[in-house]
Nucleic acid binder design. Structure first.
Lengths: 227, 227
DNA sequence: ACCTGAACACCGTTCAAGT
DNA sequence: ACCTGAACACCGTTCAAGT
């Protein structure tokens, strides 16, 4: 039943590190991080699981590649003349954009920013901006790490986010959570009930992301002013 | 070789939901979240893996129990007369304390705060404080979620944190990371190199936690002032 | 009510082998 | 250089069965 010609539609080129990482990212985007499995990935690439071990030492190295693929999509600003906080904000916006494009992979990126070149360029810029803002090296490092972590939390932890589910499934899940909150005692939990809508789902708009970013920037600016 | 008497040291009482959850938390504390496996947990409890399914529907429910065990250790303040931001800070400090006592489990708690009673009491207080600060319900919800997520990031993402490793292993890992940063091009990444110490490890003190908390509070206060 | 035993469908990974 | 095949030691979970 197997012929010499390729299966239609998917012509199978030789694998490469980058091609595998791209495919891994696509799989995570489509079905979530849990679905990103060596074996699942191998079948989508029409190859044996062990083939991937030629290109990546182990799964961790594969995830390194995924993180690099995500961060490689950033367009880093280069406005060296702008004030430090404007520069910082522009850099963080670039990161947030890349993460928001791949929410399922954001978790993977979080711990790997210093492990690839685009991530290092970003970090260099962020640290430079914070240093220019007057922070000593320790505080600059710490704030840089907070910022990167908060941004990934913004993308991953957005209420009502669901990866690899149909819109119906997602809405059903949101409704279930909402109903659970509404069922709480109104005497003990009045504010939770009052906030149930926004605790379980986000508006289509990106107020969620922008308020988070604004709060972060305000905090950093306030610390800088207190130096 | 098996006798009728119990193995010495560990007398085996009947399991309960709470006992299993406590054991799960202990296992995660000692060896990390990856080691928290139904099968590993069952062997530490000297029981069949399937025994746990009597007490918990599935692994997700077990993790719900772990989250509840962590949050149950909070001592929530009750200073209803204090200004909103003082109240908020006290609540967040209580949460941070509980999370910092169980860094391995913090990740698990993050998505489950509204799923158990102590978490709901905390959330109620946080939302109440934010509402008292003048935030509309949507912004209060969003900021509450940011705050909870940042706090878990603070605990989980602390540079140089390593769970279930000996101090030697940990230090070796820190040194390796540090060396990798030092090996970068000083022309391209001067600030990363300058900050390498604090990017790879934290001082013994809790400046890491307190700066994070301060930055968060400053950000929230700034947003409140801008209302 | 509470637990065991056997089985299933998955994992990541090693090791030897093919071309 | 690049990939396959078989095997190992793990997972979570179902289902029927024991007491």
């Amino acid at each position: 039943v197997a012929t010499k010609t390729q299966a239609p539609g998917r012509q199978k080129e030789k694998l490469s590190r980058e091609a595998v990482a791209r495919a891994a990212l696509d799989l995570a985007d489509a079905e979530g991080l849990d679905a990103l499995t060596i074996r699942r990935l191998a079948t989508t690439l029409e190859v044996t699981p062990m083939a991937l071990y030629w290109h990546f030492k182990d799964k961790d190295a594969l995830l390194d590649g995924v993180a690099e693929a995500v961060l490689g999509q950033m367009r880093l600003p280069d406005d060296a003349s702008a004030p430090w906080d404007v520069r910082l904000r522009a850099l963080l916006d670039a990161l947030l954009g890349a993460l928001a494009a791949h929410p399922a992979a954001a978790e993977v990126v979080k711990t790997r920013i210093l492990l690839n070149d685009p991530g290092r360029e970003l970090s260099e810029g962020v640290l430079g901006a914070l240093r220019a803002g007057g922070f000593p090296t320790e505080q600059a490092s710490q704030i840089a790490v907070y910022a990167l972590q908060l941004l990934t939390s913004l993308v991953v932890g957005r209420p009502g986010l669901a990866i690899g589910q149909s819109e119906e499934e997602r809405e059903q899940q949101v409704r279930t959570k909402w109903a659970a909150l509404q069922a709480l005692s109104p005497r003990r939990f009045p504010h939770i009930i009052e906030c149930a809508d926004s605790l379980t789902d986000c508006d289509e708009s990106d107020e969620w992301l922008s308020l988070g970013m604004d709060t972060l920037m305000s905090g950093i600016q306030a610390r800088a002013a207190a130096l």
